[in-house]
Computed example of a mutant assay.
Amino acid sequence: MPTLDLTADPVALTAALVDVASVSGEERVLADALEQALRTQATHLEVLRSGDAVLARTRLGRPHRVLLAGHIDTVPIADNVPSRRADGIIHGCGTSDMKSGDAVFAHLAAALPDPRHDVTFVFYDCEEIEAERNGLGRIEREHRDWLDADLAILGEPTDGTLEAGCQGTLRVEARTTGRRSHSARSWLGDNAIHRAGEILDRLASYTPRDVDIDGCVYREGLQAVRIGGGIAGNVVPDECVVTINFRFAPDRSAEQAVAHVREVLDGYDVTVTDLSPGALPGLSAPAAAEFVAASGAEPRAKYGWTDVSRFAALGIPAVNYGPGDPNLAHTREEHVAEDRITACTEVLHRYLAPES
């Protein structure tokens, strides 16, 4: 089992975490190493193992509790492990999404035995794959009290900027039907692919909303992301399916998002295939407002869905804040700037350190 030094510079710790491969479903070695490090180097923390997730928390009786959460899994490796450091950059799978955030959190777990707020650390598994395997879901079912907090901070890549809340996401299939015939006798058929043209026209002319919530502007989008139809090169198709993704502002509930898309596609057979609600920013909550002030950053809306939505569903304000660049997540060229790691560490240390 690899040995992790939580007291090391978070930059070096990032490289160490990257060097322990942890593709989704294969996080056990890294989870073992994190658990061992927390139990031996952060003895002021209560530590819990849940599957391949590792949790730790203070119990100091502070009036507020802050939760720092980061997933330890990565997408499949693309010849980019072990890590490589050059010119102030760490290259490697997971550097941006999100082992640099994990390194910041793990370092703080050891460096702050007496924080001003009680703190819970959650290093969880299987975030990058299907939602039913996400370690946060298991923790919620089996150890619900461990997720209680006045603010949750997820170390998702934000390039050192505070991104509040998140968009909801909805995928539907809109289906058209026709009549199959030989393409040489096309007048005997009714082409379902041609019928899908009206769906595409509606999407192309759709005007999305921009929604300002707590000073964060969420931009909606309704896009066709896949189209399928036809069975052979000489057959008029009798079915066509258009897959559509709606990224919606968190002022809409999941049910309202579905109703809106059905209204836009009125007259067509619409089937919901995936749905996750968004998360409101919640920046007016005291612990969140304090963190905004400590970060010195201008909060912006999170474009995309993250696990902040899970915390919002529990009534817990949540933000995304991490050193990685979201544009580099899941790429072969994934990397993170060392100065971003240092800056994020300093902000969180300033926010959590005891008052002098």
Rank of each mutant, 00 (worst) to 15 (best):
D307T: 06
A16Y: 06
A110L: 01
A254F: 05
P354Q: 01
H182C: 08
A149D: 00
V18D: 05
T271K: 11
N245D: 15
I316Y: 01
A31T: 08
F246T: 04
G88Y: 03
C166W: 12
T3F: 11
T40A: 05
G304M: 03
A294V: 03
R300T: 15
G165Y: 01
E220A: 06
E290H: 00
T345Y: 08
I227W: 04
C216S: 07
S181A: 15
G189F: 12
A164H: 03
V217F: 01
S356C: 03
S284A: 10
E142W: 01
V217D: 07
E127R: 02
W305I: 14
V119A: 00
E132R: 14
H117N: 02
E198V: 12
G230I: 04
F105I: 12
F121D: 02
C166N: 14
E239S: 15
G267Y: 13
M98A: 00
R85F: 09
A152R: 06
R202T: 13
R252M: 14
H194Y: 14
L265I: 06
I77S: 07
N191S: 12
M1F: 10
R185Y: 11
T306V: 10
V272C: 00
D102L: 15
H91R: 13
F105G: 01
A343S: 14
A131E: 09
C166F: 13
Y321N: 04
F248R: 04
M1R: 12
S356R: 12
A285T: 04
T177Y: 14
H349P: 01
Q36C: 05
A318P: 10
G197M: 07
E127I: 04
D73K: 01
R350W: 02
D274M: 12
V119K: 01
D212N: 13
V258F: 02
L68N: 01
H107V: 04
A110W: 00
P250E: 09
E198R: 11
G215H: 14
R185K: 02
E46T: 14
L147V: 02
T95C: 12
A37M: 14
H107G: 04
G282I: 05
V172S: 05
T169N: 10
G88I: 05
L6F: 10
P82Q: 10
G230V: 03
T158W: 03
G155L: 00
D9K: 08
P326H: 03
E132S: 10
T271F: 02
D114N: 14
R171Y: 11
V211G: 01
D79R: 13
T7L: 10
D145S: 06
L67S: 02
Y206C: 08
D118Q: 00
A86M: 06
R262L: 05
E263K: 11
F105V: 07
Y321H: 11
Q256C: 05
G215R: 11
H182E: 07
